[in-house]
Computed example of a mutant assay.
Amino acid sequence: MPRILVIEDDEVTAREIVAELGAHGMATDWAATGCAGLERALAGGYDLITLDRMLPGMSGIDVITALREHRMDTPVLMISALSEVDERVRGLRAGGDDYLTKPFAPDEMAARVEVLLRRHRPQAENRLRVADLELDLVRHVALRGGQPLSLLPTEYRLLEFLMRNSGQVLSRTMIFEHVWGFHFDPGTNVIDVHIGRLRRKIDVAGLPALIHTVRGSGYRLAPAD
């Protein structure tokens, strides 16, 4: 699951960005100032940063300048109410970074983020494979034995998380917080329901089971022994 840092001082805009990216299966953190955002960004671990150009104290341009000076090449989607890209921004758009003008449609913003993520994702990360199960991370297509699987968005995110951690026992808490993005409610059966649906699509009759229940611990995706 991609991790996105949202640096935006306007709370309404920030919540719109966080909600839209969350609906596209991305985990987000929000920083309301340039200084706070730079501190989080330098700590690392983010796949992309959305960055407001006009921030109190430390501007977005100052933030991206500091990032590049620290040799951090995390892709940045600069967001601004200014309709024109000035020369300082043009000079900082190395490595496929993009620029989006306010007001913007949330789905356009998410599409730009996904394009930047694909552009910066190593080629080896474009596809996940466990046994004869494949996940194309660019086209968002899952296949078992070469045959396409019809997955709902949540099922796709769940399968991606299982495949990225293949062989590892994943607790319900881990699955819930990584796939759904908020604190686990021990009283819910939503994980078991979605695992059941995913199993019916992946572990069809005549094929070795790949999704295993580890009693009392959680679930594990791995080739059959």
Rank of each mutant, 00 (worst) to 15 (best):
G91C: 10
P106A: 10
M78Q: 07
V76L: 12
A110H: 06
R90A: 15
L100A: 12
R88E: 15
Y99A: 06
R88A: 15
L77G: 13
F104T: 10
D98C: 07
F104H: 08
G95M: 03
L67F: 07
P106W: 00
R112V: 00
V76R: 03
P75W: 10
R68M: 02
L92P: 03
E108I: 06
M109F: 07
Y99H: 08
D73K: 05
R90W: 09
A110L: 09
L82E: 12
D98Y: 03
L67H: 04
L100H: 11
E84H: 07
A111V: 01
L67M: 12
T101G: 02
T65V: 09
R71W: 13
D73Q: 08
P103V: 10
D97V: 13
E108H: 06
D86N: 15
D73C: 11
L77R: 11
A66Q: 03
H70S: 07
T74E: 14
L67R: 02
F104W: 05
T101W: 00
L100F: 00
L82T: 07
D107R: 02
R112D: 01
S83C: 07
K102L: 00
V113Q: 01
F104Q: 05
R90C: 14
M72E: 13
F104V: 03
E87H: 07
A81T: 14
D98W: 06
A105W: 02
R112P: 07
L100N: 12
K102M: 02
D97K: 08
A110I: 03
R71T: 07
F104E: 07
A81Q: 00
S80G: 12
G96M: 01
A105T: 05
A110D: 05
E69K: 09
V76N: 11
R71D: 10
V76W: 02
T74F: 15
R68C: 05
G95N: 09
T74K: 11
T65Y: 13
R93K: 14
E84F: 03
M72K: 09
I64W: 01
A105Q: 05
A94F: 14
T65S: 15
V89F: 04
R68E: 08
H70I: 00
G95Q: 08
A111R: 13
E69A: 08
L92S: 14
R90D: 11
L77V: 02
G95I: 07
V76H: 06
S83G: 15
D107W: 03
E69R: 13
E114D: 10
V85L: 13
T65E: 13
E114T: 04
V85A: 12
